[in-house]
């Protein structure tokens, strides 16, 4: 079954002559348990697709189906139990005056869990942080540790689909390796589905089974990772991307 289906998705900002079409006619689907990558330059619309799925881009048309349920303008509470997002900048995505315990505890409470205490401990263990980080504030954590907290927060409602928006591009390569390993393990253990945006083709090559190359809001090519590794892009633009990143 497809965890995510995107059909003829258009996303735009502004009206009249200020209208910018950020995504034009995007179409792809991600089966359950797969990891799918979106690559392209900045401004190509790859993050906008993620934002449209989560409801952060107000104006879109077309079809988004998550776990068999077609999305309307409003997102239901059950949607956020299925889909969670990890953002690019771990420095900006955590509340500076909330401790790790508050961040995770609040998320769990919002999703109606009772055994919050035990779950916070478990979440911290799952992302490799452990108990001693529970009462720290974001400024007492390194970039990699913050990103682990952000991942723990995303895992809190036990989602099926994780949207990853450049989860490692603000991190050093050695820390990037740790976070990518964590994401690989989590997907294996929990049978998660990933939709990952990155400008780094080697990261997508490492993490994903298939990927779509985007340019000016349009998907120019969908290929599997074997084609990427074999440098066998069909479209001229994806070839260009490949050349630039080797």
């Amino acid at each position: 079954m497809n965890m995510l289906e995107i059909k003829q998705l258009d996303v735009w900002f502004g009206h009249g002559h200020n209208r910018v079409d950020a995504v034009k006619g995007a179409e792809f689907s991600v089966p359950e348990g797969e990891s799918f990558g979106l690559v392209g330059e900045s401004g190509s619309g790859k993050s906008t697709i993620l934002r449209a799925i989560t409801g952060l881009a107000p104006e879109w048309s077309g079809g988004i189906t998550v776990n068999g349920e077609r999305l309307g303008k409003q997102r239901r509470k059950s949607f956020y139990k299925t889909v969670q997002m990890v953002f690019q900048d771990p420095y900006a995505s955590l509340h500076p005056r909330h401790s790790v315990d508050q961040v995770l505890g609040e998320t769990l409470a919002l999703h109606g869990f009772r055994d919050i205490d035990a779950r916070v401990v478990k979440l911290l263990d799952d992302v490799g942080l452990g108990q001693k980080f529970r009462f720290r504030y974001p400024h007492q954590l390194s970039g990699g540790q913050r990103q682990r907290v952000a991942i723990a927060r995303a895992l809190a409602p036990e989602p099926k689909l994780l949207l990853l928006d450049e989860p490692t591009s603000a991190l050093d390569v050695s820390v990037q390796a740790e976070i990518l390993n964590l994401l690989v393990d989590l997907r294996k253990d929990r049978g998660l589905t990933y939709l990952m945006v990155s400008h780094d083709l080697s990261v997508v090559g490492h993490m994903c089974d298939r990927l779509a190359a985007m340019r000016h809001g349009e998907i120019v090519e969908i290929m599997d990772v074997a084609a990427l590794r074999g440098m066998q892009a069909q479209h001229a633009y994806s070839q260009e991307l490949l050349q630039a990143s080797v």
């Binding site: 390569v173 990037q176 390796a177 990518l180 390993n181 083709l201 080697s202 090559g205 990772v225």
Partner: peptide
């Protein structure tokens, strides 16, 4: 060496990246 090995590479896929 650790920095170089922690980079994902298209031509050498592996399950886990080396951690420094």
């Amino acid at each position: 060496r650790g920095l170089l090995n922690s980079l994902p590479r298209l031509d050498a896929p592996r399950d886990h990246l080396e951690v420094l």
